[in-house]
Design a binder for these strands. Sequence first.
DNA 1: CGCTACCTACCAACTAGTAGGTCGGAATGC
DNA 2: GCATTCCGACCTACTAGTTGGTAGGTAGCG
Lengths: 192, 192
Amino acid sequence: MSNLPSTADDILRCARTLLVRGGYNGFSYADIAAVVGIRKASIHHHFPAKADLVRAVVAQYREEARQGLANLEQAVADPRAQVEAYLGYWEACIADASHPFCVCALLATEMQLLPEAVALEVRAHFRHLSGWLAAVLERGAAEDRFTLAGTAGDNAELFMAAVHGAMLSARAYGEPAAFATVSRSLLERIAV
Amino acid sequence: MSNLPSTADDILRCARTLLVRGGYNGFSYADIAAVVGIRKASIHHHFPAKADLVRAVVAQYREEARQGLANLEQAVADPRAQVEAYLGYWEACIADASHPFCVCALLATEMQLLPEAVALEVRAHFRHLSGWLAAVLERGAAEDRFTLAGTAGDNAELFMAAVHGAMLSARAYGEPAAFATVSRSLLERIAV
DNA sequence: CGCTACCTACCAACTAGTAGGTCGGAATGC
DNA sequence: GCATTCCGACCTACTAGTTGGTAGGTAGCG
């Protein structure tokens, strides 16, 4: 399965961590080289330009997100349980600080100075996540598990915004619990 | 009244705009120099280090926010109208792209690599805003203008997260209307 | 042989920041 | 009144270090 040589994978993993920590302009090839234990120039061998590297990180992230949501759809039937699982996933990520921010949400803050290909991927991720949430909420509403005010789409946008904002709050306060507080409040507001 | 020489003020204004556009690492002294029409070194005369400049921007922003909320308290009595005015303020800022993101919300994404003094100001802003929102929501609930689920504090955190997330969505989609969508949804959810 | 992975050794451009000087205007001394 | 002194604002010219990126070479492997 793993057809990627481990070094390229290491670079991607490291770049993702650094990206999540400080955004596009918050890390350099030198930072990655130091962590991975390789020379700067060797990174260019795998990813010619920084834009390519970040595009690859985002593409990989988006693929994982797609897979994750698809698995969730398969493993969990109840829409409310799906939403809880989604929130729980992020709660865990933020609590153990392994991956405490959505890559695309973070990059969205720098939208104006991102390479265009990256910006398009970020936008597509927002659309995709919002679409998935709208479908889940709509299904939940049909099964009387959720009360929606307005369209499912509008509720999904509110949900997504709250989740992204909660990541921000957890980071600003320096306490992962802030995410849990918001996500609990959000769930109470939306669930019947 | 204006005891600040206009150049220092120009630098602050310009730095804020650039900060809001791309964060702490998204602009340089050279960028400011080009806009203000001054040499790089002259910026150092007014703000010795980048950390000083950004701290000044954040301090000024926080002061304006304090003033703005105080004025709102005075001009508008009804809690629901206060919340609407607050959302309307940001809706207008985002729509005309004059100042389309909260300075502190943006800096919060880079929390880990911010000078400590700046990080503390950012955190304080989150506390202050959340505190104000909690007070307004509590008062509104007492007057039966809002329905709260849980504590006023929890509701305030949810509100704040949704607003910050909505700014992010507007930027990610590249359409200011996305903020309005979320803020309308949010208001419907919270108001009676 | 060619290919991949990696290296050393560069590069130009840019980063924040410093040293030291010029200029004009306000305060001071006589 | 006028020279002197001082200061703030700004400048040119520089620094050391970092940025993303390149050129060209080498070692191992099928």
